[in-house]
Amino acid sequence: MAQILQYLANGLVYSSIIILGSIGLSLVYSIADFANFAHGDTMTVGAYGSFVAFGLLGGMGGSLLGLPLGFYVSLLVGMALAAAIAVLTHLAVYEPLDTDSIGLLITSIGVAFVYRASLMGIFGTDFLQYDITRSGPIPFLLDTVGVAITQRDVAIVVSAAVLVGALHFLLQRTTLGRKMRATADNPDLARVSGIRTDRVILVMWVIGSALAAAGGVFLALYSQLDPRIGFGILLVVFAAVIVGGIGSVYGAMLGGLLIGMIHELTPLLGDIGIPIGTAYAPAIAFVIMVAVLLVKPRGIAGDLT
């Protein structure tokens, strides 16, 4: 039982990362109308941006949830960097294109390669680690329920929850959010209603990429950092978006939670005697994705916006 709780706890941390990635991917899918294969590498760009910022800023004294305050500042730096690069890419690459969504999809693969090649050229391909000492599990939780959760895990989940909460507030309570939802729902109708959809698209790139960067930072913090982490997780993020229903931000959150949980619950299969190792965790996510595409192409929450 404690073992299952442990898997669920891990799943919550991993889900937080996937959710942050899947929101941006879903936003691009619904507003810019293409499958953005550069999204994973946007996560990596953000992670490297924050890594460098943290190296320059240092701890800055004080700490929150076991992480120095400088880390949170560098997180924001990484998010800003990824947003700026995504906007530049949109203006320089995607917008001048006269092509359909498939042409954009293929272009985004080129963009992904350019991002990754740049990172590999600047930083090399070695694994990097944040210079933050890892603390052990929180003793209270370990003693009472027998689940090993570090402060770092809590920090990831809480930060993700804050970001997602902020997005929810933005979408539901502000004029900008209403414009975004209108544009996602029907771009032509939004435009004739007087919404400047080109600006909404820029905002969408900013929000989606900033959240992706946060996901990348937490992924690097959770395990380690190298130029391939983003592309490595991209398909799992796609799985989350598709399971949740393409174009639905809340569906992407739900899909992220489900796929993250399933990913981390894979060891359970081995525990109950099914010989499928943890190496197959992403494979299981992909198979579920294909199954959802076949059975319910609009996803489990495709009708929510």
Partner: peptide, 20 residues
Amino acid sequence: IGPAPLRLMLVGLLIILIVR
């Protein structure tokens, strides 16, 4: 820039330029 990133960069730029 090493050969592997250079290769990746060329392939990426090529894709973008062809579609454009």
